[in-house]
């Protein structure tokens, strides 16, 4: 049962990663990479690693995404 759940989450992660690499719009790509971080945190939980899952959930999905958006905002500002 857990294997099926892991496979479904894995499909979501791979689709998110493909989307993040191949999408033209940067904002959509950044949010897709945030989804990859969130899904991988659930995968860590399935592998019996709650410590790693906690770190990945707050860093991979929140802080990394926020830093990318701050950079994007700054670049847009510099452009005028």
């Amino acid at each position: 049962m857990l294997t099926v759940l892991a496979a479904i989450l894995g499909i979501a992660a791979v689709v998110g990663a493909y989307y993040a690499i191949h999408n033209e719009k940067l904002t959509a790509a950044i949010i897709a990479s945030g989804i990859v971080g969130m899904v991988s945190s659930i995968l860590f939980l399935l592998l019996a690693a709650p410590d790693v899952a906690m770190t990945e959930a707050s860093i991979g999905s929140a802080l990394t995404t926020a830093i990318f958006f701050f950079t994007l905002n700054k670049i847009r500002q510099t452009n005028g």
Partner: peptide, 10 residues
């Protein structure tokens, strides 16, 4: 589950 790195990230 927890520790310095997790607490710091939160």
């Amino acid at each position: 589950p927890g520790g310095g790195f997790q607490g710091g990230a939160i």
